[in-house]
Design a protein around this nucleic acid. Structure first.
Lengths: 251, 251
DNA sequence: CAGCTACCTTGATTCACATCAAGGTGATTC
DNA sequence: GAATCACCTTGATGTGAATCAAGGTAGCTG
């Protein structure tokens, strides 16, 4: 049903020359994405190894667990989820990826992707072939440093999620996710208080270790407390302090 | 009470020249540690940047959350735990580190350690100054590659833990941890079936998102089922298949 | 626009693990 | 060798979220 387009021979991800061509130099995400901290000369070199391609349609896969690892990917627009499937068929969502964020780094260790990545809505992706990135990193200390930092950030974020899952209640988990999404929107100069959730309640539950029903109940509760206005996927934060109090985060 | 010895001016971690001097070339862990995949020439260069020091005593800190990040560390002997403290004072253990394993990589992203690391028993540590490692990585493609892989492995392991916390029962979590420790012992050519746990039940609970009581009950249950023989911290795996069945892992 | 499908919400019941409570064991200290 | 402390075990009770169940809503499709 969904088309697997990360295979090398597949048409969908082949470089193409349509009007959605962008380069790192003029991309408005370059201050939060991989080019961060690079000189414009260096950005040009990075840009040369990056492959852009036809957008991914909703529910198409960027890669699947077990695929050969060739590249890491930057989100240019849209949202993706990364997830693993347990062998009893259940799904663990390990992360959501918004524009400017990098995914696929979990494939480096075994030269094979440790999770699958799927578009939650139409998404434009920059593909960064890893061997080229390695070579370039050896030449550009800033790039090497920055990529180490990106991987390290992934680690600290996973640790935050571990803490959240292990120590926090359903209310706290959902509140923390709303704050995270709000913060990531703000980083992209979008509204921190009003946004559309790209993922379903099921995905939220799978990410936070909760069932759909519980997620739904938490949203209802937040609505009743006038912390959030929830209209299906449209979210409006009415009381940011209340939301932070509810999240009760650790740091 | 515990002495904080990661500070630069402190005596405890200063390089010293006692009989516990080892180098990467003759270290019996070099096939699973950072030198993996390096030529002996390269190992020598790596060795030159590594600082060895007086062992850490039980419950001493290697670094604390918020400390300036300077180095990553390799465990030469003993065991450490990494943990974060939530601001309501509770502790989340994010990992246990056995000989040959690298810790501290979560500090790269912010130039400040994102967690604390504490010795669970006397432990010998190799300190690897990160700026030196970066420079060396730029010169040695194999080292760069290997360090990327180590970070990526940390990510995939964190994702496994996320899945474990989010989807598995208390029995499954404890069984999975026993299998993990068993496997890591085997990798160091130690017994996969009989070992001494270096950590307390409280630490196990904090790692697995369970209370001490629950951990204790799981051990009792496993003992009753003749899967494990448990004598305080001495563990003997009696039925490895049974243990794997109990862990019911995803992959 | 009727009918389907995917997704979301709400309520009733159940259950796995937390919490509360008490006692046991072994190591260290004076 | 009595006392203290840190750690572990076991039992009784409580509770937050899962599960089971049913109905609602919105977007597609023919």
């Amino acid at each position: 049903m969904t088309i697997h387009i990360a295979q090398s021979g597949d048409a969908a991800l082949k470089p193409c020359t349509h009007d959605y061509q962008v380069n790192c130099g003029n991309c408005r995400l370059n201050s939060i994405c991989l080019p961060l901290a690079l000189e414009s000369d260096d950005i040009q070199q990075l840009d040369d190894i990056i492959q852009r391609s036809k957008p991914l349609q909703k529910s198409q896969h960027l890669y699947r667990e077990g695929d050969d690892f060739q590249s890491v990917f930057a989100v240019r627009s849209g949202t993706l989820k990364a997830y693993k499937t347990t062998d009893d068929g259940r799904e663990q969502v390990t992360g959501f990826y918004f524009p400017g964020e990098i995914l696929g780094m979990d494939g480096i260790s075994n030269n094979s992707h440790a999770s699958s990545a799927k578009a939650l809505e139409t998404a434009a992706i920059c593909e960064i072939p890893f061997t080229s990135l390695e070579k370039l990193s050896a030449l550009m200390p800033n790039l090497q440093r920055h990529f180490f930092q990106l991987m390290s950030r992934e680690i600290t974020e996973d640790q935050q999620l571990i803490t959240l899952l292990s120590k926090n209640s359903a209310d706290e988990r959902v509140a923390a996710l709303m704050l995270s999404i709000s913060g990531r929107n703000a980083r992209r100069k979008l509204s921190a208080t009003q946004f559309r959730l790209p993922m379903s309640r099921v995905d939220i539950g799978n990410y936070l270790g909760l069932t759909v029903e519980t997620v739904s109940r938490v949203f209802s509760r937040m609505q009743k407390m006038d912390i959030l206005q929830v209209d299906n996927k449209e979210i409006k934060i009415l009381d940011a302090d209340g939301l932070r109090a509810m999240a009760n985060l650790s740091g």
